[in-house]
Design a protein around this nucleic acid. Structure first.
Lengths: 269, 269
DNA sequence: TTTGAATCGTTCGCACAGCGAAACAGCAGT
DNA sequence: ACTGCTGTTTCGCTGTGCGAACGATTCAAA
């Protein structure tokens, strides 16, 4: 499945003559992005194929990343894998997100009440990345945790985020969502239009089996100030625990209430 | 407090004429590393000062990182902060670490038993970065979670890791630890030497208030195969819950037993 | 075992892109 | 106007990316 689109980075169409743009850096990071869950090891040739970067250059980049501790080389396999360095980058960001501390208690409470999981995520390209996740103690729930990625177009959290965006940004993302999955575009588009209506009427969006069969969820965007932009909450779990009616009449409104509380609490700090 | 040393990266002493090394990439990543918990926003000038990179170059790098979604620019403050892109990198690594799934149940069990927290970390430069953490349901415990960093030289987890290293690597790290904190070096050195004796005799190390007052813990390295190198477990919490005697006679041995079990379980897969 | 045809990754030398000292520009606050 | 602080632009020199050529492996067929 294609979770992320290939947003063009180099060979940049529009503004390829950006003298401020450092290509080598962009490419090195693109190398790191090639590694995905389930693909621990990648060889130079594979990286070259995926990124379109010439082989000798990939060689130099992997060599550099290895020396810096972001990649590790496996002699036996002749392939690279991600090393501990990459973890360090992400955490400094998490640690500086005070929303997490503010929201956590209410999230945990709703997770227990709903016997499902409640999460907070930020957008990255065409995914939502979890930055906080609470699950009920009765853990029949799914295994998504901080750092997990879910698609933006078919999940409640993702659609909620889309609904909160200014028109320009919304259109830009819709364009990319279409390009990433032309085949399912009509269905996806309908889902997002429905989400917009739901959001306008009730303040939350739903995804009932759209992403994975038997996963139901509601989503609400966080309408914060500057730095908390592009974040959204969800409450979701297995379908038998969260029938549509319960989402609409109980959990949706409760999640909206949770988010309003978080927003005022943030204002106070 | 200085948690991480400035391990020289460019202006590289030994092999500055490494034609394989891409400086621009190293510098870009060094920029991202400047952001630490508690320092959400940094300006170009500050970044230039910290890294020693000339201002115009910092300008180009931040511009590039912003376009790629790893940094975000705050108009109001005229400063940069980490953006969602950095999270994505770390998670692909976590998802591919099967040790986590193997170890989690036993970790949770020990966490409940000890009413403290049990964590697994990997080394990154002079820190240990948590990749998994379980806490007891009775959560009087400290707030460290996946992605947190603790120093290598004064914590049980870090010292346990040091004890497991081959001599060459051990010496290399000791050198850098000394350079990072000359002032406290004598005391730190004694602590590590004690850890080596403890490890040789009983298989675990301890830190009783060495890192933070009133934080006590035991640590055990994971002696795995290739890819699980440089990982270690700890079990720690507030001092009043974990008196030295309990660490030595109960939790230390139990943590050793846990790690042995994880090692054999990993061999089976 | 040898040979040929595939891989794979690294080396080489040239052309050019990115670096950085210095100069420039925007803003505050004396 | 000056000083002290930002961040950006200029432009010559140089470090760096890339095509092509080169080794190193592997596997299959001769």
């Amino acid at each position: 499945m294609l979770m992320d689109s290939e947003i063009r980075v180099f060979g940049d169409d529009e503004e390829s003559k950006d003298r401020q743009f450092v290509n080598a850096l962009a490419r090195g990071l693109e190398i790191l992005r090639c590694f995905r869950p389930g693909e621990a090891y990648l060889a130079n040739a594979e990286l070259a194929a995926r990124t379109g970067i010439p082989k000798p250059t990939v060689s130099r980049l992997t060599h550099t990343l290895t020396k810096l501790g972001y990649l590790a080389y496996s002699e036996s396999q002749g392939q690279y894998r991600l090393a501990s360095g990459v973890l360090a980058l992400g955490y400094s960001m998490l640690a500086n997100l005070d929303v997490r501390d503010i929201a956590r208690p209410a999230m945990q409470e709703l997770a227990e009440y709903s016997r499902a999981s409640v999460s907070l995520g930020v957008r990255d390209r065409l995914s939502m990345v979890y930055v906080e996740s609470c699950r009920s103690s009765a853990r029949v729930t799914l295994q998504l945790t901080v750092g997990s990625r879910i698609p933006i177009a078919t999940t409640a959290m993702g659609k909620a985020l889309l609904c909160s965006l200014p028109e320009r940004e919304f259109d830009y993302l819709m364009d990319h969502i279409r390009l990433a999955d032309e085949e399912n575009w009509p269905r996806i588009k309908l889902g997002i239009e429905q989400a917009q209506r739901d959001y306008a009427e009730r303040g939350f969006c739903m995804s009932v089996g759209e992403w994975h069969q038997d996963i139901h969820s509601v989503g609400v965007p966080l309408l914060g100030i500057e730095r908390e932009k592009s974040m959204a909450f969800n409450c979701g779990g297995p379908g038998f625990l969260l029938p549509r009616e319960k989402l609409e009449n109980d959990l949706g409104p409760r999640l909206v209430q949770l988010v309003r509380k978080v927003e005022t609490d943030m204002g106070r700090v």
